[in-house]
């Protein structure tokens, strides 16, 4: 196990850390940087609770090594908005989406990646993106409504 000093750009802030080659980004974010909004739930990339944005793409942070994303832009749930809430977060409040809330960082990151890259996704594209994140409380219907709320507000602006 080697530890080399690397540069991480997390939520726009630069951190220099010597990380072990194999530590997953999830545990680096949670235990080293204290960014606990990103959650552990399955550890095998099947539930999406640990999703973060790496160069604007949603990835399961339990499945990638921290060392492999050095110098890339990493955005966690804490960094989606500098103050108040992003349009996706606000839609989540407006539709009262979360219940226990544990998976919701993953849901919001997945929706953000989807809508940032494609402001008017088809139902099939929404299904594909959002099926990556499990919700045991069953908030899917509200997730759907919140996503459509963002799509509609964006299209009414443009």
């Amino acid at each position: 196990m080697s530890s080399l000093n690397k540069t991480f750009i997390v939520n726009g802030r630069i951190h220099n850390y010597a990380v072990e080659d194999d530590i997953p980004l999830l545990w680096f974010l949670r235990d080293t940087l204290g960014l606990t909004g990103t959650k552990y739930s399955c550890g095998i990339g099947l539930c999406g609770s640990c999703m973060v944005l790496v160069d604007n793409k949603a990835v399961n942070s339990c499945q990638i090594k921290a060392a492999s994303v050095a110098n890339k832009s990493i955005i966690t749930i804490e960094g989606l908005s500098q103050n108040s809430y992003s349009s996706v977060q606000q839609a989540w409040i407006d539709e009262q989406v979360p219940q226990c809330g544990y998976c919701q960082s993953g849901q919001i990151i997945a929706a953000t990646a989807l809508l940032d890259n494609n402001p008017r996704p088809s139902s099939k594209q929404i299904d594909e993106a959002m099926s990556a994140v499990l919700c045991r409380c069953g908030t899917y219907q509200r997730v759907k409504r919140a996503i459509h709320r963002v799509i509609n507000s964006q299209s009414s602006k443009s």
Partner: peptide, 18 residues
């Protein structure tokens, strides 16, 4: 509106694991 929702959308909610 539920009072526990705002911190559940910005990552600040503190669960046992946190």
């Amino acid at each position: 509106p539920r009072s526990d929702i705002p911190t559940k959308v910005n990552g600040k909610a503190m669960f046992g694991i946190d």
